[in-house]
């Protein structure tokens, strides 16, 4: 006996095998990301005022990546539609574009966005020292506006040796623009365009600092969840790209045997890809915008 319904649907369920399989897999993926997002909710609700940073990511780049993923979602569905209409060469074109989009997304993420964070520095101040750095923080102004306080000073670290060398007693930080004029109402909320750290250098004594690191997962729970969720999401994108590449190069063999079989495979891979897109639709506002 051969395994039935690999290509054609079983009449009483109306589904072929891989369709059932992929939806079950996606259900488990929903629970996986559900667990991570519930951790996000939990940690964010638990965070002390000011400890869940806002506006530290590069929004235009993030928007660009979102658009790339959405675009690739369209092309993958068109690739599938082309196969359904038995237009193989057009399928190849759409598939190539999809793969390219996936690669662009990963390159932007790993080649630009993540390194940009590693290069950024932040120092959480001790509660007792907040007063001392009021001219950078502008907490009186924020209090009057009913906004959460600033407890961290971020920017470009000029003396990187200070991170490891206990003999160096202070950090020299090229301030992010918000700390140069903290009481300006324009600075109350984050900006759309990314502004690189200014040449305005502040000296922060280590004795006043609670904890200071580059923007790594260790920096705070915001970056911990950011790197974990985007990292896991990136792995999914990578998985999708690998599958698409396989279908791009070896799809012809399946197509010659049974075009419907290839269409089904592309549909299944596409379902996974749409799911990856769908997760990103939530990741983007939660981390970049809110």
């Amino acid at each position: 006996m051969e395994i039935p319904y690999t290509v054609t649907a079983r009449p009483d369920t109306g589904l072929w095998n891989a369709k059932v399989g992929i939806w079950l897999f996606l259900a488990s993926e929903v629970m996986l990301f559900g667990g991570l997002f519930s951790a996000y909710i939990f940690l964010r609700l638990d965070a002390e005022p000011g400890y869940w940073p806002h506006g530290l990511l590069n929004v235009p780049v993030g928007t660009f990546n979102t658009a790339v993923l959405i675009f690739s979602s369209v092309t993958v569905v068109l690739a599938w539609a082309s196969l359904k209409m038995r237009r193989y060469s057009r399928y190849r074109v759409y598939m190539a574009i999809t793969i390219l989009c996936g690669v662009i997304f990963l390159v932007v993420k790993l080649g630009y966005e993540w390194p940009q964070k590693y290069d950024h520095f932040g120092a959480y101040l001790k509660t007792s020292s907040l007063e001392k750095y009021e001219r950078y923080l502008g907490n009186k102004h924020l209090l009057a506006e009913g906004l959460p306080p600033r407890v961290e000073i971020t920017g470009h670290l000029h003396n990187e040796a200070a991170l490891d060398d206990p003999k160096i007693k202070e950090y020299e930080v090229g301030l992010d623009v918000v700390y140069t004029d903290p009481t300006d109402p324009k600075m109350d909320r984050p900006h759309f365009f990314f502004v690189p750290p200014t040449e305005h250098v502040a000296t922060i004594e280590k004795a006043d600092v609670e904890r200071a690191t580059m923007f790594l997962p260790t920096h705070n729970n915001y970056f911990a969840t950011y790197f974990t969720i985007t990292g896991l999401h990136g792995l999914h994108v990578l998985g999708g790209v690998i599958v698409f590449t396989y279908l791009f190069f070896f799809g012809g063999i399946t197509y010659r045997q049974n075009p419907e079989h290839l269409a089904n495979r592309v549909e299944v891979a596409g379902l996974f890809w749409h799911f990856v897109d769908l997760v990103w639709i939530f990741v983007f506002p939660l981390f970049y915008l809110l």
Binding site: T8, A9, P11, E260
Partner: peptide
């Protein structure tokens, strides 16, 4: 027994 023969017309 209900039929479980695959059908093609739907696709």
């Amino acid at each position: 027994p209900p039929t479980t023969e695959p059908v093609d017309h739907e696709t």
